[in-house]
Amino acid sequence: MNIFRFFGDISHLASIFILIHKIHTSRSCRGISFKTQVLYVAVFVTRYLDLLYSWVSLYNFVMKVFFIASSCYILYLMKVRFRPTNDPSIDTFRVEYLVGPCAVLALIFNYGYAVTEVLWSFSIFLESVAILPQLFMLQRTGEAETITTHYLAALGAYRTLYIPNWIYRYFSEGYVDPIAVTAGLVQTGLYLDFFYVYFTKVLQGQKFELPA
């Protein structure tokens, strides 16, 4: 554990709390892509199967359980509790274009041909692109509630902080995880456009609006 990874994880936690807070206070999941949230459940469940057979630390265990539980809770909020506020007609990204290639990549690039290892790889690849339906939705509507942009910023900060973590681990432990690093760089790259608008507009007190 190092400071970058720790704050990355905290940022990830924060993003989930911000999202749940947004849904509860506005009593609406408007502007949130259900597809992205489903992909996150798939990511956490396929990655954290090792909960069943390997122990890393209490920290690791609690975080994994929290990520699985909170992502399922968000699906419940969107599909049951605040269902009328969820508008599938603007959530039109084709997720099969993400899941299919990630499954193929996982079969090619993994750390061992065990079901759990392939699923772990799959979850890493899928996480890197899981935000795309959400960003696509944002692109389509051209604007977002400020709180939604804070959610996205915290989520983007999480993987961004993992990059200095990997650099740190390379020098301090000689540890390199090429699959996580490659996917992590892609994932962070997807946020660059968003970050640009977030820093130049939202943090200057303006509304998140994309140029027409």
Partner: peptide, 10 residues
Amino acid sequence: RPSESGHDEL
């Protein structure tokens, strides 16, 4: 190799 010690990152 990362998998030998398990995947310790979240």
